[in-house]
Each structure stands twice: as C-alpha cells, then as structure tokens.
C-alpha cells in the first residue's frame, strides 16, 4: 500500500446507541472520511461530541448503525468478533489515556503478550527490543504499579508498536500525564510512527499535540469537519 492510498475509509457512517429506556441516542451522523497510509491525523472535539466513538469504529470495537468501514483494504463492517480480533491483531495498535496495562504482568510480559497473540516468534527478545526503543530497558521486570504514569504509557506505546501495526489509534495518549511526561510520550509516539511508517490517528484535547499531526479534524455533535487551516496534506 502506497502512502497516498487510503488505509482507512469510512463511508456514510452513522452510529446510534440505545439508552437506559431503549431510546436511541444518535452519536454520529453520516460521516465519511479517508485517512491516507502513513499520515498522522488528529480528531479534536468537546466531550460527548463522538470522537471516541469514531475511533472505536476504526478499531472495530463498535459496529456502525449505517455505512461502511474499510480498513487496510478489508471491509470490517460486518466482521464478527473473532474476525475483528484477528483483524486488530494484524493491523491495529491502540494507546489509551488510562494506559490499560495488565496489572498482573511485568512491562516485558505486557509487550510480549501482544506478540504472542499475534503469533510472533522470539517474543521475549522482540519485547525487550521494543521496551529498549522506548527507553525502558531498566524496567523490563517491573509491574505496572511499580512504574510512573509516563513509564506506563511508554510501555503501552511499546506494546502498541511491537507488532508493527499498519495503524496506530491513540485516545488522549497524554491526557493522564504531566507536561514533562506528556512531552516525552509525544516525542516517542511520533518517532515510532516515523520509524514504522505507521498511520496515526489520535484523539486529543491538547491543541499542541493536535498541531503536530498533518491533518486535523474537528467533530461536533457527531458531525465531522475538516480543519482546513491545519491541513498540511
């Protein structure tokens, strides 16, 4: 897949979720979006605007009410859960605001599990390599609760990149970090993206972080708008 080809293609996507009284809440309305291979895109918007829902659709963890989702050349709209798991294993890496490391595993094991699930060989050495790439060679055998927030997020980055996914989805990756750690994680994120030529889609409130991406999208009440002033191609 060449860099100017769309790796993510959303066509007329709508998402409605049923509330407590079975009343439908319309989250996303008729969204169409194409994300180019190797690009960095940020999605910004107020709380409840639908940005996380949009990312969930791209990750295949939510199904659209209407529309079509094609990611990495596969129409995942009607994939079942196991097909989606396989799809994610091979194509997607995700970084969360809350890190979501498995607390019973060491940093190394947290990275290794992603490799094991993807069926890689030499998982241990690859995991160590990945952790070294985020500067955590000295924290291999520490458990998440023995690591600082910044270190945890760096483990999460290592985990997300270790299988060399085509796409990295990041949901407020610096949201739970102080500015110094946030800066470190941001630098690492873009460095790894460049190294692996990964397509990056990130959700953020942080305007500085958003400004680092080549394309910025604004979502408002479930409708997506291109922020043309920041569109760098």
């Amino acid at each position: 897949m060449r860099n100017n080809e769309a790796i993510i293609s959303l066509k007329n996507i709508a998402l409605s979720l049923s509330g407590p009284n079975k009343k439908l809440t319309h989250i996303l309305h008729d969204i169409s979006l194409q994300v180019q291979q190797g690009s960095a895109t940020s999605i910004v918007g107020a709380s409840g605007s639908g940005k996380t829902s949009l990312m969930m659709l791209m990750a295949g963890v939510e199904k659209p009410t209407k529309g079509e989702i094609i990611v990495a050349g596969q129409d995942i709209t009607h994939f079942n859960e196991d097909q989606l798991a396989l799809f994610r294993r091979e194509n997607i890496g995700i970084v969360f605001q809350n890190f979501h490391l498995i607390p019973t595993m060491t940093a190394c094991e947290n990275v290794k599990i992603a490799l094991e699930l993807a069926g890689f060989d030499n998982c241990q050495s690859r995991a160590i390599e990945s952790l070294e790439s985020v500067g955590l060679a000295h924290r291999l055998h520490h458990y998440p609760d023995q690591l600082s927030g910044g270190e945890q997020q760096r483990v999460a980055l290592a985990r997300a990149f270790t299988t060399a996914p085509k796409i990295l989805l990041a949901d407020e990756p610096t949201g739970n970090l102080d500015s110094e750690n946030g800066q470190q994680v941001t630098e690492l994120l873009f460095k790894l993206k460049a190294t692996h030529n990964t397509t990056l889609v990130l959700i953020t409130h942080d305007r500085h972080l958003a400004s680092l991406t080549s394309r910025q999208l604004v979502i408002h009440d479930g409708t997506l708008n291109e922020n043309e002033s920041h569109h760098n191609g």
């Binding site: 990750a59 396989l86 599990i113 992603a114």
Partner: peptide
C-alpha cells in the same frame, strides 16, 4: 479490563 485489553490486542473469543 484485562480481558478487554487482550481482545484489543487481538485475542479471539
């Protein structure tokens, strides 16, 4: 949460 993480990482049912 752990199970959800495993699923996000590609663990099948």
């Amino acid at each position: 949460t752990t199970i959800a993480v495993l699923k996000v990482q590609g663990a099948a049912r």
